[in-house]
Every structure is written in structure tokens, then in C-alpha cells.
């Protein structure tokens, strides 16, 4: 019931949300220890937590906080498998920014 929203973003929107929690849906490009490179209309570096179980090439949804260097500190992540329509996910990000009254508190 709280007025809290976690905006869905792609790479291009990250600099508008520094210090805030966001949702990113993208494809895992590379895994380097506790870091992952995720493609969400551009590459995003994600600092993973211990619970993360990602696989390179799979889709992933991460919820995390945007750092000043535009990397994302992951709070929660879900592996989405391979059947993810990334253009659909990017379209939803665009729509959710066009119609903010349905999706986000300012």
C-alpha cells in the first residue's frame, strides 16, 4: 500500500535514477565472479549478491540500486530462461515512461 514504485529502465535511463531502485530486464552477456554484464538496450554492469544464480545467454530481471558510476548493485535477481522477448521488454520501458501516471510516483 505504500507509494513506492520501482521503475523499469533500460541502460539509457540509468542516469536519471542514480541512488534509486530500478528494475532492469536484459540478457546476461558475461559473468565475471560477482559482476555481470547485462544487455538492456545497452550494456549495464551489475554487482551481484550472493543469492544470484545467473547463466550467460539467459534473460534476467534484476532489481537494484543505481550507483553513481551507473552500475547497478543487485538486491534481487531472477533467471528468466531463454524465451524472453527483449524488444517487448524495452517497449514496456518506453511506455512506462510515456504514461508515468500508471507506473511511477515522482
Amino acid at each position: 500500500m505504500e507509494a513506492i514504485s520501482t521503475p523499469r529502465v533500460t541502460c539509457a535511463y540509468l542516469n536519471s535514477y542514480v541512488g534509486k531502485n530500478v528494475i532492469v530486464v536484459g540478457k546476461v552477456i558475461q559473468l565475471r565472479g560477482d559482476e555481470a554484464l547485462i544487455d538492456a538496450d545497452g550494456n549495464i554492469t551489475a554487482h551481484l549478491n550472493r543469492e544470484a544464480h545467473l547463466a550467460a545467454g539467459n534473460g534476467v530481471q534484476i532489481i537494484g540500486k543505481v550507483n553513481p558510476d551507473l552500475s547497478v548493485k543487485v538486491l534481487s535477481s531472477i533467471d528468466l530462461g531463454t524465451g524472453v522477448d527483449y524488444s517487448l521488454a524495452n517497449a514496456v520501458v518506453e511506455i512506462s515512461h510515456q504514461h508515468r501516471e500508471l507506473f511511477a510516483y515522482d
Binding site: 523499469r8 530486464v25 534473460g59 530481471q61 522477448d85 511506455i95 504514461h99 500508471l102 507506473f103
Partner: peptide, 18 residues
């Protein structure tokens, strides 16, 4: 079961609103 349903629902909600 299919994650795309999440995105599709967001678009559907927007469509009905519009």
C-alpha cells in the same frame, strides 16, 4: 510461467487506460 506475460500485462493495462 512465461515472463513475457508480465510485460504484456503492462501494455494491456496501458491500452485499456488509453
Amino acid at each position: 510461467t512465461d515472463f513475457n506475460e508480465v510485460n504484456y500485462h503492462m501494455l494491456e493495462a496501458t491500452y485499456v487506460h488509453l
